[in-house]
Amino acid sequence: MTKQETNIIAPTLATRRSPLYRRHLQYQAHFKQVGDNIVVDSYPNEGAINDEIEIAKSMGLCDLSTLDRTGFKGVGTPQWLASQSFKVPVLANTAEEQSSQSLLIKLSAQEILVLSDLLFLSEDVKRLYQKAVENHQSYDQQIYNLPRNDSHCWLAVTGINATELFSKLCAVDLRSHKFVQGAVAQTSLAKTNAIIIRHDLNKTPCFYILSDISGAEFLWDCLLDAMSEFHGAPVGLSALQTLASNQ
């Protein structure tokens, strides 16, 4: 996508808006539209995308809040998802990437979170949402959908220094060799409840954060403040997409 196309997209074009869109506007972000979603393409800087990729490799912060995600709860949930050909992890607090590229996270024996992939390859979230609306709205099968798009903001902290950042905000040991690919922690981040998921972008460490959407700006500011000593900065989705697609 070229700059001309992205420049004219305003985050308010969509009725569904990230709680952080004003922060992005402050940084004069370039937005882009993917399907119904408006996301930050990149922030203005000297070398544009290449610079952001370098930042993301070291320490970057990206807002994914307008990307699709969903969740399900209830005794029947794991079995139902398995019957929909999903690979459901055995252990709670584990994430498993699906062959369709979506990420399925088991939060407890009865609770699952599903995140779409950064390249928009998978339709899993939309499909599951439709299925749930069609089949489970009478709530008599112990499967309950959760409005994860709206209850939680979705951020990504990337780069080899990401764990240094977390050590200033979180009392759980998230260092690379202790908190490996697929690990999940439901914990307190800057005194806010958060789900932290390790899901690397190929060789670049990446941590997804899902946290109460009403506290999104507070958390965003805390993360940026804690990043400053490591020269971390916000990055657009395009940098992450590049890292995710380059094998």
Binding site: R17, P19, R22, K168, L169, A190, K191, T192, D212, S214, G215, A216, E217, F218, C222, D225
Partner: peptide, 14 residues
């Protein structure tokens, strides 16, 4: 030193 005071905002805040 640095402490955290979580703040919650409605989507209509601004």
């Amino acid at each position: 030193g640095r402490s955290f005071y979580p703040a919650r905002r409605s989507n209509i805040h601004y």
